[in-house]
């Protein structure tokens, strides 16, 4: 199968570029004699995983919970809000301008407030991840729900179809590609939100760990933390992509 060989080739090239980056990193450090506190080698970075003090698993789990929790909350509430908007136009006219204004608040600036309100810990960081990715999801979902061909509405109207039928058979499935494009943007933002939350105040998580090891100049551990954060983000993004493949017909997907 030509298509199959194409796919294998594509994956092979993707893996290759990642390996090349690691190799370049390795040779840069080794040949350039770069001090370890500036940039550790890949091997040194990996070795930092063996330090039990850093509680890698616990910290990674905390960060993952913040990212997935805030993200899930944003998807549910974001899509829900947009659905309410499409159902009640006046609600959209009332609340959408307010949301646009609120979205202009730099969410990072809310961090200290969240800590005052909810104390340290996972809770405020979930809230930060949520705050940063809620709006894009509302916006793309609302857009998708409003993109209905007027002629298609006429067709349903000649059959005296109900508003619910229009919604369930045409509007919602038609909006799915938009919802997923919002979810993809939000997945990236959620990671940033959770880490910023940990920077501002936390007692666990990979962002918290980074601040701890910064003091002792354990750059290898900082590198490792960044890599783990990235891997959690990749896992979330991959999950969203898989879900999209499952639910959205190829031609309908937004690129």
């Amino acid at each position: 199968m030509a298509g199959n060989r194409d796919a294998i080739q594509r994956y092979a090239l993707a893996v290759l570029s990642h390996l090349l980056l690691v190799a370049a990193w390795h040779f840069f450090v080794v040949l350039g004699d770069v001090p370890a506190f500036v940039m550790p080698s890949p091997a040194a970075t990996l070795r930092s995983l063996s330090i039990p003090n850093y509680r890698w698993f616990e910290n990674s789990a905390a960060t993952a919970i913040e990212i997935f929790g805030g993200y899930a909350l944003a998807v549910v509430l974001g899509v829900g809000t947009a659905l309410l908007f499409s159902w009640w136009r006046w609600l959209e006219m009332l609340a959408m301008p307010l949301l646009v204004s609120l979205n202009m608040i730099p969410k990072v600036a809310l961090g200290p407030l969240f800590i005052v309100w909810f104390a340290y810990g996972i809770g405020p960081n979930i809230l930060m991840a949520f705050a940063i990715c809620f709006f894009p999801i509302v916006l793309t979902t609302a857009r998708g729900l409003s993109e209905v061909e007027p002629d298609l509405l006429d067709l349903v109207r000649t059959l005296k179809g109900s508003r619910w039928q229009i919604f369930a058979k045409i509007q919602l499935p038609g909006a799915l590609p938009y919802i997923f494009s919002g979810m993809k943007v939000a997945a990236i933002l959620a990671v940033a939100g959770a880490i910023v939350g940990e920077f501002l105040g936390s007692d666990k998580g990979l962002g918290y760990l980074m601040l701890q090891v910064q003091v002792t100049l354990d750059t290898a551990a900082m590198f490792m933390a960044v890599i783990l954060i990235t891997l959690i983000g990749v896992a979330l993004y991959g999950l969203v992509l898989a879900l999209e493949r499952l639910l959205v017909v190829r031609d309908a997907r937004l690129q």
Binding site: E149, D151, L152, D154, L155, T158, L159, K160, K169, I170, P173, G174, L176, V248, V249, D251, A252
Partner: peptide, 18 residues
């Protein structure tokens, strides 16, 4: 019967992609 005796065809096929 106006609710079930009309069939419409437009310039675009307007098929549901999914």
């Amino acid at each position: 019967d106006p609710s079930r005796d009309i069939g419409m065809v437009f310039q675009q096929p307007l098929l549901l992609k999914w």
